[in-house]
Design a protein around this nucleic acid. Structure first.
Ligand code: MN
Ligand code: MN
Ligand code: MN
Ligand code: MN
Lengths: 224, 224
DNA sequence: TTAAAAAGTTAGCCAAAACTAACAAGGCAA
DNA sequence: TTGCCTTGTTAGTTTTGGCTAACTTTTTAA
């Protein structure tokens, strides 16, 4: 069984692969920053992961997950997201609190417990942030949602996912009704800085919100 | 924050203190056996725990928990038992499955999560095995329950607790209706080996059971 | 009372996973 | 093209928590 540290590396590499361009290797520096660990520590762990067949490591270039490493990463991510949703559904956690709890629990939850949680929740396909929950066999539903900052005025869209775990940002978005399931109308966009003026249709009714392009880029939507 | 290993030692020492005689020190050997770790490893950990003020360690004699060590042990035990009950109550785990899950989860559950689980369960005072759940401030309800093998014929008693985590034994006892809450009548006791002939009044109705003195010693009851 | 067995300690080893300091390679801009 | 800055690697150290082998202390039983 992989250690907690190994699981965290695999997860980090998986996430960095997702956001990097197709087929590109993940740089050591990016892993070091994500995990807040020194570069030499990363180099030495990557060698060890490579020795164990979990990654393909090219000296001075970077790494990518092997099929085995990828499925292990997905198994941890699956647990993470199931735990997040479970905490929200059963214990009244809010969506800004669950990430840090899940970050530890993901390494202590057995496959059996994950399966029970999955069944209890009715085999959900996404967590409280709209992140897809990988299936037991490592399938991840793909979505055609796009960042909200890429929407033009008069566009109407449904929020599908929020790509950020910062509790502050999440509380701010919740305040504005900008959560998965809400509908947004793009009222106007500032030409020079991309600031967006939105009309939001959430469970709290119809409200308006003005957010930066930066913030909008974390919000994935499906235009209607 | 203590490591997982330190938490496991503190818990083991606490449990061994409970079963040893009043005021006696816990022997290194007992810890080694309980944790399935070599004696030298135990010696070295005890020194380190003593350096950190978690135990009082007397060379060649044994250890006892310091007040600080005791409260840390109780906090882990509290989490363990809350988790066990939570798994049974919400996820249809059976009482023989929960111990091993809780053994890992107890180290990953935050104080905050423990408090939420506690509230969700309605501030229970015992886990599925009848083990008392320590309060946040380290209070443990004492019970005057006695081992069933100390009961005489014609005695009627209510089962309060089962002092054994073996899945096999637990499944066997469940089968016989010998679970906390059931009422037992001692029909007869074999003179030479203490084997007990019982009449059991459980949720499954009135049944009879014959168990060894050894098995009966794990079952704590309150005579009526 | 004393010798053997059991329990405990010391010394020395290892692995995992972190770190810093020093050096090497790669990439970019002048 | 060259030089510098960034990135990556190597070497060596630390901490934690295991281990075995060898020795010492304590306990037990003859
Ligand atoms: Mn994690
Ligand atoms: Mn999430
Ligand atoms: Mn444990
Ligand atoms: Mn229990």
């Amino acid at each position: 069984m992989p250690t907690i540290s190994v699981e965290n590396y695999l997860k980090a590499i998986y996430h960095l692969e997702q956001q990097g361009e197709e087929g590109g290797l993940v740089k050591n520096k990016a892993i070091a920053e994500k995990l807040e660990i020194s570069l030499p520590s990363v180099t030495s762990m990557l060698k060890s992961l490579a020795d164990n067949g979990l990654v393909v490591y090219e000296r001075y270039k970077g790494v990518k997950l092997s099929p085995d490493g990828c499925s292990q990463a997905l198994n941890v991510i699956r647990k993470h997201r199931l735990i997040e949703l479970f905490l929200v559904e059963t214990l009244q956690y809010t969506w800004d609190e669950v990430h840090s709890e899940a970050e530890l629990l993901e390494h202590a939850v057995s496959d059996k417990l994950a399966a029970k949680i999955d069944a209890y929740l009715g085999f959900p396909d996404s967590d409280p942030h709209g992140d897809p929950i990988p299936s037991v066999d490592g399938q991840v539903r793909v979505s055609s949602a796009i960042p909200l900052n890429q929407c033009s005025p008069y566009c109407t869209a449904i929020i599908k996912r929020v790509l950020n775990q910062s509790p502050e940002l999440l509380r701010y978005l919740k305040e504005l009704g900008l959560v998965p399931g809400s509908a947004v109308d793009v009222v106007s966009v500032q030409a020079f800085d991309g600031q967006m003026n939105l009309s939001v249709n959430s469970t709290q009714g119809e409200t308006s919100a003005i957010i930066t392009a930066q913030t909008a880029s974390c919000i994935l939507v499906l235009p209607q």
